[in-house]
Amino acid sequence: MKKNSIFRDALILFLITFVLSVLLSRVKVMTQGRIDMINEEILKKAYLSVCENYYRSEDVTSQIINSLNISKASLRNCNVAYNEAGEKCGYIVSADIAGYGGNINVLVGFTVDGEIRGIEYPESLQETPGIGMRVLDEDFKKSFIGLSYDNYDNVDTITGATISSTAVLQAVSLATDCVNKMKNRGL
């Protein structure tokens, strides 16, 4: 077999790929712990911002997911929130919806009566700066506070950002539906 063969070239390519994969897996293992910790902190901060006194949550997604109304948004998880004393202090729902530039993850916090306490976006958005990104404005986020299942769409969409704002609305709608179903089941 000639030294200059395809076999030799393929072997070198294999070796390069092999060494790089080993290197990459080492880096991944090294950083995974920190990354998980950071993601947990981000999520916890988001939970706290939509549900005061949040201490821990109980994931009840599996009980609810089959009874939801059809929606463009999809449920990531829904939780019952408890404060430090172990009392139920509200509900937290995380929903995903396709925005204009990519996925939008909306976190909605509710009081025990099913009223919206606040919304948050734990993950970075890819909407258009100055237009769709304005769903991040405090005014828009605050406009959901106090709404619930019957009147969740009582908000002004952002001018020029129809797609992004209605996406958030659909996510909130799914969240209110979810809480409604949770309360019906006595959760």
């Binding site: 395809i6 070239d9 070198i12 390519l13 994969s21 880096v27 950083t31 920190r34 990354i35 950071i38």
Partner: peptide, 30 residues
Amino acid sequence: IPDRVRIPSYIVIVATLVTIVQLIMQGYFP
């Protein structure tokens, strides 16, 4: 790197580099 497999080699090197940069950024510069 042999001439015949240079493009796949470059791609693998660049992709690995970028993934490492991303992981380090995620873990240490959140």
